[in-house]
């Protein structure tokens, strides 16, 4: 129970951390720092000419966000697969242990029953 509470609080903290700036919105555009740095270079080092172009550029921002979503989906998918397998393995292990314990208990009960049935040999 306490474990779930801690998990929920952690998730909430992560959400709050990134939702707060949006709620406190001061009319910001949330430009990416990578592009801000590029602009900074263009401003301060005006003579600099980029000497190489990207081999492939997504044609529109829709395509670009789609490719980013694909990257996240691939990562999320693999991560989910791994966690699912690990969790399944743990569950299977637990079931095996429970079954083993139950077999042992049954065996012990059977033995005590047998001992009770056979009269003790007279000394």
């Amino acid at each position: 129970m306490r474990r779930h509470l801690v998990t929920a609080l952690l998730v909430l903290a992560v959400i709050a951390l990134f939702a707060t700036p949006l709620l406190l919105d001061g009319g910001s555009e949330y430009a990416g720092t990578d592009s801000q740095a590029t602009e900074l270079i263009e401003d301060s080092d005006a003579g600099y000419e980029p000497w190489f172009e990207s081999v492939f550029s997504p044609g529109s921002s829709e395509i670009e966000s789609g490719l980013f979503a694909m990257q996240a989906a691939l990562g999320g998918g693999v991560l989910g697969y791994v966690l699912g397998r690990l969790k399944g393995r743990r569950t299977a292990e637990r079931q095996r242990q429970t079954a083993k314990r139950q077999r042992r208990t049954a065996e012990r009960q059977r033995r005590t029953a047998e001992e009770a049935a056979t009269p003790p040999a007279a000394p």
């Binding site: 910001s28 555009e29 990257q71 990562g75 999320g76 693999v78 791994v82």
Partner: peptide, 18 residues
């Protein structure tokens, strides 16, 4: 996979950039 997901997601920060 963790690095793959996280580096695909741009998140807003209190400084007004992401």
């Amino acid at each position: 996979a963790f690095t793959f997901v996280l580096s695909a997601i741009k998140l807003p920060s209190i400084t007004g950039s992401s």
